[in-house]
Computed example of a mutant assay.
Amino acid sequence: MRASTFFTSTFFAATALAHGNIVSPPVRLPGPVTQQVCGADTVSALTADETGPLENIPSNGAPDCNVFLCKGVQFEDNQNNVQAFAPGEQVDFAAELPIPHEGPCNVSVVDLATNTLVGQPLISFASYADENLAQLPLNNTQFSVTMPTDLGTQCQQPGECAMQWFWFGTNAQQTYENCVDFVMTA
């Protein structure tokens, strides 16, 4: 009985925390502006489990805290992490997926002012992080995207655009997201 209680508790703890996130390139992390906009509970949830689903992040009803846009993490806390990419440049991503949940995933350029996609996704997976596989395909944790060549003058100012990794675990009904702030260079 004690062994089953131990394993049940261990399994519950493992499923309560740690699902997936991007570890490279640098993603947005919460700071004082995020706490001011979203509240201490939001920042606490974000720092307690950087890999947790959006559904576990409270927004405390704050009108400017949109957890479905970069997890609610504010650009102002991340100005030193803005990456510079050239049109057509290949950008390597590394993901950490300690608890996979099969579902669709993509990386897209997002206009941060409107929370809308700019163009087509840079990469899409119809089936990503399938927990039924003995081992995940390498392209689930290491993949590359090619920066668009048709953005014109879009995404040239810091805070205007981000590359957003978006993954939805279909059976788990959980959403995962990270944002990489960037500017396009000439």
Score class of each variant (00 low, 15 high):
Ala3Arg: 13
Ala3Gln: 08
Phe7Pro: 00
Ser9Phe: 12
Phe12Cys: 10
Ala13Lys: 05
Gly20Phe: 05
Ile22Phe: 08
Ser24Thr: 14
Arg28Ala: 14
Pro30Lys: 06
Val33Gly: 02
Gly39Leu: 02
Thr42Tyr: 05
Ser44Tyr: 08
Ala45Cys: 04
Ala45Phe: 00
Asp49Gln: 07
Ile57Ala: 00
Pro58Glu: 00
Ser59Lys: 01
Asn66Leu: 12
Phe68Asn: 12
Lys71Leu: 03
Gly72Asp: 04
Phe75Val: 11
Asp77Gln: 09
Ala84Phe: 04
Val91Ala: 00
Val91Asn: 02
Asp92Leu: 14
Asp92Tyr: 14
Ile99Trp: 09
His101Lys: 00
Gly103Phe: 09
Val107Trp: 05
Ser108Phe: 10
Val109Gln: 01
Asn115His: 11
Gly119Ser: 08
Pro121Val: 04
Leu122Glu: 06
Phe125Leu: 01
Ala126Ser: 12
Asp130Val: 09
Asn132Arg: 14
Asn132Val: 08
Leu133Pro: 05
Pro137Asp: 04
Leu138Asp: 15
Asn140Arg: 00
Thr141Phe: 09
Asp150Val: 05
Gly152Asn: 05
Gln154Glu: 12
Cys155Met: 00
Gly159Arg: 13
Gln164Asp: 11
Gln164Pro: 04
Phe166Leu: 15
Phe166Ala: 10
Gln173Glu: 12
Gln173Thr: 14
Gln174Trp: 06
Ala186Asn: 15
